[in-house]
Design a binder for these strands. Structure first.
Length: 990
RNA sequence: GGGCCUGUAGCUCAGGUGGUUAGAGCGUACGCCUGAUAAGCGUAAGGUCGAUGGUUCGAGUCCAUCCAGGCCCA
């Protein structure tokens, strides 16, 4: 005020400036605004309008991995869907027809449980409900939740065919899944085998791991000795080539000792011994032959008895067997054990078979005897060891068939000679007489050397709370290693397909390959109600699977029209078998397909069946857990039926952790729901969080991180806002590129470079790169450099100024590029920006901005890199002046810049350097740097001394110039501003 | 316990084939502006590159071991 001339009040020129003018708010209010944009997209039927718009373009298909229709979405689901939307939107804007059809996984156990629970609440038991009534309830349950999730996905901004998604429970899908299964049946890849499952005798049902809980339980324990039957020549040779001299007396002694010794096992389930078929040993454990030297008179283990035991467990075993003294006689290397076979302890009582010793990594030497009794029908590990050795067993003349020793009623079958009809577990869930009978028989056979009781954790049914047992049951398998007639197997085809698939990140390839290499045959049957049945008939006499195209066609047609419920209707068997087959001979299988087979078939009933999609998909995208899940089952299904993978590329993302990098858990209270983030910040903030992370690794989320994302968003939003405000004054001129100032050409060059970079990053699904690059660009090159410099020209230049027109053209172009590039990541905000720019048509229909590749000018960029280095010296010098309070704003300054390198001097002289450093004037001097002036070590040969700007301050532009008042009409303005005012006032007068 | 993966400033990320004082943006502190104003500009602080050993003239980058964390198995 004190500086202002008291006599004449200077005119306020503010409203003669072209200041930014926009209604685009600084604060987005995303939680409130976003639903409005979703409504507008619904109103214009965006999904179908996009299909129409892009009809005829090359298709790009991301095939959706179906989430389970059960419960609200969580942060991981949100991440997954947002990433998919990035893929789809970016490819749409790259010029493809990127058609996304969401899907849902609807069958399966968790829904069955919920429905069962609901029935129980009404006092009805599952067994009392007709199967199709139960299935109807499950269908409704899934329908309800998929509707909820559908709304939640759309709230995230995801575009796709939400009016017509695919559902694994739709009738055509159920028909499609059954048809796929029948392909496996007719091509002989499907076979009936058996496998131990957890079984509740009380409920007469198989249980999944999630359906059991562990409680204390008292078990009988036994130490049982198996007589050695034979030691093969290979084992003998192994021994003779061992540590001692070949063929020494020592070796012969060991052999003799071994043949007389017995292998000791320890078990808590004596009732499984009739099912014993092998003994497992640990390949890394050291074993020895021990001889009892003293024991009580009536003891089971007597002096002179020899036992084979793990060395670290011998002492404990002998204590348990009440042996008073013993001695160790020999080392027994595990290479020898590999060739040893034993007799079953009940040999002579109907158990006349060879019991091989098998290596097993599950065997430890911290409890038991170091040998594990192996009953393949009664334990998962037992089963696996047995199956791994199946080929060798057959070669050795051992029947690999797994006996069904216990029936559904918990009683021994004829496969357990001598015990038939005895109960393991009674209908009431109590211990039956099986254990006692087996123990008595063992004692009688002289095989028992110790017994006891043990309290331990044992699985119980979570419904009845009664103990469960492992029991061999018939199951359906898809063979991994069967020759499919062309020399290939399902495994070899799948491995081949993996080699031809692109993985993002690349490590996914190894991970999937490792799993396929080692996986056992695929068990596809479940003893369940809610799913697609295994639609095959089996000959009751021969076990042969019916292969009849007409029967299969009837099944497919019925499912198409009525759903898979048709399989469970009265008279279904006769209906499908038709005239040609007798339902009395052909058994209808009532097992349900594993849900992984359902989702593994989506490529068939969705991709292949929908005319608007294509097979194979360009890409599948899921969490890294799906290497074992959907990527895996889809690969096997497709390789078994079509010989290749249903995808060309597989993208995986990691898991979302809490802020400290640990797993989120309800008990730790560090979970964060997408709904809360949307309510507090908006979906675009959640999306920007996804975009700014490396999704291929695990991500973190939490308060601080979200705050950081919101900050970054705000900064970006303000730059967009400034462009919108500036462009309010844009009259749309398109100056020739060559006529534009270098600064504009520099920015256009940057766009040309970024154009390639952004498109390339989108093509490799690298959203982090897009987000970081563009935000960096907006902050460093636009907000802090280009915009800052050009404010003077944009605000003050005359309406006709070519410099102003060039700047407006450039801002306009920058805006179009930036907004379209960011649209896949921030669809709400970019739609809002687009609309604020006056576009009537949604940005969803736009492609990435067209950038003229001719704008690229690397020489110019290199030149300006030098200019900016000198600029840094000047801004540094200005900072010192500010600190010393000699200047306030940079327009008060007049730097004198001394440059030693003549070439560099010429470069700087060639640009409007005062504009570039935003000072009123600048003087460039050739010569060595002034030691008294400001310099930067990283910019040698350049110094800057800052003087106060001379002249008078222009009341309009605030620049100090010597020509203020040169136009008498505007005594307080510089010549440039006076001319601008004359133009403005003239226009106003006209 | 096994397979695959990750660990660089407070936060999010860059750092081809090992080579000068490890970079960016955001945030923070301080200053400026008050014509992008619950904004804009500038300056500065901030890292034993998870740890330890090794290879090498030289390692964030290669090797080994360990620690922490994740997914999938057991």
């Amino acid at each position: 005020m004190s500086d202002a001339p008291a006599s004449e009040a200077t005119r306020d020129y503010s409203d003669t400036l072209f200041l930014p003018k926009t209604d685009f708010p600084m604060r987005a209010g995303l939680p409130k605004q976003e639903p409005g944009w979703i409504r507008s997209w619904t109103d214009l039927d965006l999904y179908h309008a996009l299909r129409k718009e892009s009809a005829g373009r090359e298709k790009f298909i991301l095939h959706d991995g179906p989430p389970y229709a059960n419960g609200h979405i969580h942060i991981g689901t949100a991440l997954n869907k947002i990433l998919k939307d990035f893929v789809v939107r970016s490819h749409q804007m790259l010029g493809y027809d990127a058609n996304y059809v969401p899907g849902w996984d609807c069958h399966g156990l968790p829904i069955e449980w919920k429905v069962e629970e609901n029935f129980r609440a009404e006092g009805r038991s599952k067994d009392a409900i007709p199967v199709n009534e139960f299935r109807r309830e499950c269908r409704e349950f899934a329908q309800k939740w998929l509707a909820v999730q559908k709304a939640e996905f759309q709230r995230l901004g995801v575009v796709g065919d939400f009016d017509d998604p695919y559902l694994t429970m739709s009738y055509p899908a159920e028909a499609g899944i059954a048809r796929e299964l029948m392909k496996f049946a007719t091509s002989d890849q499907l076979y009936r085998g058996s496998k131990p499952v957890m079984w509740s005798v009380v409920e007469r049902t198989a249980l999944a791991e999630a359906e059991v809980e562990y409680h204390d339980y008292q078990s009988d324990t036994v130490l049982v000795a198996f007589k050695i039957a034979n030691i093969d020549t290979k084992a003998i040779n192994a021994l003779r080539d061992g540590p001692s001299e070949p063929g020494t007396e020592e070796d012969e002694k060991v052999l003799t000792d071994l043949l007389e010794a017995r292998v000791v096992i320890w078990t808590t389930t004596p009732w499984t011994l009739p099912g014993n078929r092998a003994i497992s040993y640990g390949p890394g454990i050291s074993y020895g032959v021990y001889e009892v030297t003293a024991a009580p008179a009536e003891n089971w283990a007597k002096p002179g008895d020899r036992f084979l035991l793990a060395d670290s467990l011998a002492e404990e075993v002998f204590k348990e067997a009440r042996v008073e003294a013993y001695e160790r006689r020999d080392d027994v290397p595990t290479s020898v054990l590999a060739g040893v076979t034993a007799h079953h302890p009940l040999a002579g009582r109907g158990y006349e078979f060879t019991v091989p010793l098998l290596p097993g990594d599950h065997v430890t030497d911290d409890a038991g005897t170091g040998f594990v009794h192996t009953a393949p029908g009664h334990g998962v590990e037992d089963f696996e060891v047995w199956m791994e050795n199946k080929r060798d067993l057959e070669a050795a003349g051992i029947d690999p068939t797994i006996p069904y020793t216990v029936g559904a009623d918990g009683k021994y079958t004829k496969d357990a000679p001598g015990f038939e009809g005895l109960s393991v577990i009674t209908d009431e869930g109590k211990k039956g007489e099986a254990n006692k009978a087996v123990i008595d028989a063992l004692t009688e056979a002289g095989a028992l050397i110790g017994r006891g009781r043990l309290k331990h954790q044992y699985p119980h049914s979570w419904r009845s709370k009664k103990p469960v047992i492992f029991r061999n049951t018939p199951q359906w398998f898809i063979a991994m290693d069967k020759d499919l007639g062309d020399g290939s197997t399902l495994r070899s085809r799948a491995l081949n397909a993996i080699d031809r698939t692109q993985f993002v990140p690349a490590s996914g390839q190894n991970r999937l390959r490792g799993m396929i290499e080692h996986r056992p045959d695929w068990v596809v049957s479940r003893q369940r109600a809610w799913g697609v049945p295994i639609t095959v008939f089996v000959n009751k006499n021969t076990g042969e699977i019916l292969k009849d195209e007409a029967v299969n066609a009837r099944i497919g047609a019925a499912f198409e029209a009525e759903g898979a419920d048709a399989w469970f209707e009265e008279g279904a068997a006769a209906r499908f078998l038709g005239e040609a087959y007798d339902p009395a001979v052909w058994e209808k299988v009532d097992d349900i397909l594993d849900v992984w087979f359902d989702s593994g078939s989506t490529h068939a009933f969705c991709l292949e069946q929908r005319p608007d999609l294509k097979w194979p998909a360009d890409v599948y995208l899921e969490g890294s857990d799906q290497h074992r899940g959907w990527f895996h089952s889809s690969l096997l299904e497709s390789c078994g039926t079509r010989g290749r993978a249903p995808y060309d590329a597989v993208i995986t993302h990691g898991f979302t952790m809490a802020e400290d990098g640990r797993k989120m858990s309800k008990s730790l209270g560090n979970t964060i729901a997408p709904q809360n983030i949307i309510d507090q910040y908006g979906a675009d903030i959640l999306r920007l969080w996804v975009a700014s992370q490396d999704y291929t690794d695990d991500q973190r989320i939490g308060k601080e991180i979200l705050k950081g994302v919101a900050d970054a968003y705000r900064k970006l939003r303000n730059s967009i806002r400034w462009m919108l405000g500036t462009l309010a004054h844009d009259s749309g001129e398109t100056p020739g590129f060559a006529t534009m100032p270098e600064l504009e050409r520099l920015m256009l060059h940057r766009l040309a470079v970024l154009d390639g970079e952004v498109r390339e990053a989108y093509r490799r699904y690298d959203y982090g790169h897009v987000a970081h690059t563009l935000m960096n660009f907006a902050n460093v090159e636009l907000s802090a450099f280009y915009f800052d410099i050009r404010k003077d020209a944009l605000y003050c230049d005359a309406p006709s100024s070519p410099r102003r027109h060039a700047a407006l053209f450039t801002v306009r172009t920058l805006f179009d590029a930036l907004v379209t590039w960011l649209a896949p990541l921030l669809p709400f905000t970019m739609e809002e920006s687009w609309a604020a720019r006056g576009h009537e048509r949604s940005i969803n229909f736009a492609l990435f901005a067209t950038i003229d590749p001719a704008w690229r000018d690397d020489a110019l960029a290199e030149k300006w890199e030098k200019v900016r280095r000198v600029r840094r010296v000047v801004t540094g010098a200005l900072e010192v002046e500010r600190r010393e309070k000699r200047i306030r704003g940079s327009l008060e300054a007049h730097p004198v810049v001394t440059i030693a390198d003549p070439a560099l001097l010429a470069v700087v002289e060639g640009v409007d350097f005062a504009d570039v450093v935003i000072t009123s004037a600048v003087t460039l001097v050739a010569g060595e740097p002034d030691p008294a002036a400001f310099a930067l070590p990283e910019v040698p040969g350049v110094s800057a001394a800052v003087h106060h700007a001379e002249g008078t301050r222009c009341a309009r532009s605030w620049r100090y110039t010597s020509d203020v008042g040169s136009d008498p009409r505007y005594p307080d303005l510089s010549a440039r501003d006076a001319a601008a005012m004359a133009e403005i006032d003239g226009a106003a007068a006209a």
